[in-house]
Design a protein around this nucleic acid. Structure first.
Lengths: 365, 365
DNA sequence: CGCTCTCATACAACCGGTTGCACGATCAAG
DNA sequence: CTTGATCGTGCAACCGGTTGTATGAGAGCG
């Protein structure tokens, strides 16, 4: 069995080998691949046949060296395991692939320093960047954008190409939906600090609150994970809310679990709305959530980047993808919560106090 | 604002620029980075300072051309969005990063042709491959392994380095667990054709069945997704089983949804066990599942690959990671299923027949 | 004081493609 | 039959590093 060499592959044939074999020059062989229109069709034919025969694969490093582009773009996300990203990554990879680009993936672990490290490392080998939900300060991003073509996802910085998954409309619909169901006090459980999406959602909720005359308690899942969602349930119930909008589907599921543990039934006693619509397919009842086009964002970001690489002048690019509420099974009419008493029996003092307060308030529908 | 050039970055300084500026030769500059021990410390100092000053970044393509290695490894998975993979990908990326390697990610969409395309495309730019759950025929993989260093995850091919997430132990425990709970007829809902994991799980179940004297119905989720899981519920109930082991957590959740739709309560009426333990954090009650060390698999695969690239001779590498059952909330004692009659009331004819058959059989516990 | 020997650095070839330009052949038009 | 355009191909420089070898300066030694 032939041993595979570590560095350059064993007998990987080069242009010269093919050229020698055919008695033509290296440039002819090269052109057979890059500019076949300059060659006699028959010559192209011969070269390709020989290449095929030797299973020749052009050396991309050499090509990159002379042409100045590598055919690679970098995609950096804060957390691959966050279900928001895989669809985005997949779309990005597929879009890149269609135009003969590869994707270098980086996971910054929600850590700006790590993100910077990755950017610096990748800079050597890629033609451009897509940074999804970057946690870097605006100034740093502007700086990087000057050095290499760069497209942001879910960061809104003027004059830096960006693709935004805009949850405003969906969140507004979510609030309206809860209002229609008769909820009067709701809560928002926020996400990680520095998250553009979180900011945007907070703003949307605040705006919608006025319109519908609701009381909104702002809480935070710390961290913004399933466990964080479960943990926040105590304050959530104490707040007197009868419905919650969560930063994302993961937190929403954590909240669902926390509610279930306390015997609070969903949607009978409490309504829960998620955000992202990436986990709908994993619970029963299925989660009412704000659907975003996160996969599209990945595809669009890549195509913008490739346009940029193609040298096109695009001006100030700012794509905004809209959103809408998808009503499924975790939202229902308000006012029935006090029937379920299991939660009261088991509830700790603070929770009970919260419920008592709630009782004295006005009850809708 | 300085325009960023498409191809090679605007004024990206090269070795020569630094060399000229310092009045030294290019090789000296180069060695300041690669072999500083050959230079006078003071010289190294000066070079590094100048490099820093000009924010010099070595051109990886040029480096790759002369050294023969790119500092990139490829990782190809069948489906990024399958929650089994993100932890694996993250571990792989992080492991690679620690040794100054980058990861090119490919998604084959469960399609062997696409997988081959990606491999061929990537071959130009990477030093080696990690193929996770490859859908390629054994022969093709052996062939590829001859050309480039390659490590498989969840494919067991002699003389090709491989890391296996072995679910046998966990599945055995799962069957034992169900037997202890008094289940006598159980079902296995299998995964995608060609999946090594599915094969392995089938074998484990078959082996365990004999030991515990259980009847096992083999079913298939088509496709092996949430929707497929939901769809298989009808035949599942018709089979007379009172518990099911699903190919993976996603299918298990689909089954949970399908059961819930029919009013079959879990775990009171029916027990469900998943596999992978990657989605436990998304339902209530939390899923009883077979825990695998999928993240570890990614990390190990990468470190094996890097050892290979380092030129180490490792012999026939075959890592096997074990598994175990994690009991959570979706499994319970058998025998109570017939109490829940909602499902009977709504059940279509075939389902009812299935239940009738079941009734005539022996009932445990 | 001259001769090694060592050390730091310079020179130049090379990695494997790409590409502007030159050259010779072919062919049509004058 | 000459002339000039056109076409196909070869030549050679170049991309930006790496690395084996040559060179020169200075230290150590007799």
């Amino acid at each position: 069995m032939p041993k595979v060499e570590a560095g350059r592959s064993a007998g990987a044939p080069t242009l010269s080998v093919i050229a020698a074999r055919l008695g033509v020059s290296r440039s002819t062989v090269s052109r057979a691949f890059t500019r076949p229109d300059l060659l006699r069709p028959e010559t192209v034919e011969r070269v390709l046949a020989a290449a095929e025969d030797l299973s020749y694969v052009p050396n991309q490093a050499a090509r990159a060296l002379s042409t100045g582009h590598n055919g690679i773009i970098a995609l950096i996300v804060p957390d691959i395991a966050n279900p928001f990203f895989p669809p985005l990554i997949r779309a990005a990879q597929s879009g890149a692939d269609q135009q003969d680009f590869c994707v270098l993936l980086g996971d910054s672990a929600e850590n700006p320093d790590q993100e910077t490290r990755l950017i610096n490392r990748f800079t050597r080998q890629v033609d451009g960047f897509v940074l999804a939900s970057s946690r870097l300060p605006e100034q740093a991003l502007v700086e990087h954008a000057k050095r290499k073509p760069l497209v942001l996802v879910n960061r809104d910085i003027p004059r830096v190409p960006r693709v935004l998954v805009d949850s405003t409309a969906g969140i507004m619909q979510a609030v309206a939906h809860l209002a229609e169901l008769g909820h009067q006090t709701i809560a928002y459980v926020g996400g990680p600090p520095g998250s553009w999406s979180d900011h945007q959602r907070r703003r949307a909720i605040t705006a919608a609150r006025a319109e519908h005359g609701l009381a909104v308690t702002m809480l935070n899942a710390k961290p913004a994970t399933y466990a964080g969602g479960t943990r926040v349930v105590e304050s959530l119930l104490a707040s007197g809310a009868t419905a919650v909008i969560a930063f994302d589907d993961v937190v929403a599921h954590g909240i669902l679990a926390g509610l279930a543990e306390r015997g609070v039934r969903v949607p009978d006693d409490f309504s829960v709305i998620g955000c992202d619509d990436v986990l709908a397919a994993t619970t029963y009842p299925p989660l009412t959530t704000v659907s975003l086009h996160c996969a599209d964002a990945g595809g669009i970001a890549v195509s913008v980047l490739l346009e940029l690489l193609g040298g096109r002048e695009l001006g100030d690019v700012r794509y905004s993808l809209d959103s809408s509420l998808t009503v499924r099974g975790t939202t229902g009419p308000a006012g029935s919560r006090l029937r379920g008493s299991a939660s009261l029996a088991e509830a700790p003092g603070r929770l009970r106090a919260g419920l008592a307060m709630q009782t004295s308030g006005p009850q809708g529908s």
